[in-house]
Simulated scan of single mutants.
Amino acid sequence: MTGERRAAETLTEDQCLDLLVTVPVGRVAFTDRALPAIQPVNFVMDGTDVVLRTGRGSKLAIAMRRAVVAFEAGAFDPVTHAGWTVTVLGEARTVTDPAELARLAALPLRVWAGGSRDHYIRISGRYISGRRLWEAAA
């Protein structure tokens, strides 16, 4: 690996959004009892917002009430060391409007964890940034 040239590209917001819809799992960073916490989550994009589902009363649901959070997703190739990462920063809010809940329930959001996951959280896509890394030509 020594001597390899790597190229990094800063992605536009549109490129970031295009990449986010290609992966089903990301990580949300939030504050739990005044300490940083990170949890993997299934998600779906709704415009520039990240939508996820969790159980009512879960640690994640409680911690994310009107909190500013970071969401990150990415994909990497372990052979070529190429990949990308996208970060979404914004306010997380619990969805309570019946019409919005019905619309979100129709989105293709598959939850991998067991148990009831009927609590929807929307993370506003206030700041969206990303980078892509690939091997540069010699």
Rank of each mutant, 00 (worst) to 15 (best):
R117V: 04
V86I: 14
P40M: 08
I121F: 04
A113S: 13
I62A: 11
A73M: 02
P36W: 07
H119E: 11
V50P: 00
Y120F: 11
V41N: 08
T54M: 07
G90P: 06
A82M: 03
R65F: 07
V111E: 14
A113H: 10
P40Y: 12
A70T: 13
G115N: 08
V68K: 09
D77H: 08
R93N: 14
T31W: 04
G90T: 14
A63I: 07
G114E: 15
M64G: 08
T85P: 00
W112R: 10
G114M: 07
V86Y: 12
D49H: 01
K59Y: 02
G115M: 03
R122A: 07
A113M: 11
R110C: 05
R110H: 14
E91N: 04
R56V: 15
R33C: 02
S58I: 06
H81F: 10
Q39R: 15
R110S: 13
A106W: 00
M45N: 06
W84Q: 03
H119T: 02
R103M: 05
A67S: 14
T80Y: 02
T85C: 11
A106D: 08
I123H: 04
A92M: 13
P78C: 04
G115C: 01
M64D: 03
L109H: 07
V44P: 08
A92G: 14
G114R: 10
R56D: 11
I121C: 04
T54I: 05
A37P: 02
G47N: 07
A75M: 07
P24V: 01
D97T: 07
R66N: 15
E72M: 10
T87R: 11
A37F: 08
A34Q: 07
K59W: 06
L52Q: 06
P24Q: 06
V44N: 09
G83Q: 13
A67D: 09
L109E: 02
D32P: 00
L89V: 15
R33H: 10
P24S: 11
R33P: 00
G26N: 12
V23Y: 04
V86S: 13
L89Q: 08
N42Y: 09
V25T: 10
V23H: 05
A37S: 14
W112G: 02
A99K: 14
L60C: 05
H81M: 12
W84P: 08
D32L: 14
T85R: 06
Y120K: 01
I123K: 01
V28I: 15
E100N: 10
A29K: 04
T87M: 13
S116T: 05
L109I: 02
A106I: 01
D77L: 07
V111N: 06
A75V: 00
R65M: 12
P98D: 09
Q39C: 12
A70P: 01
L101I: 05
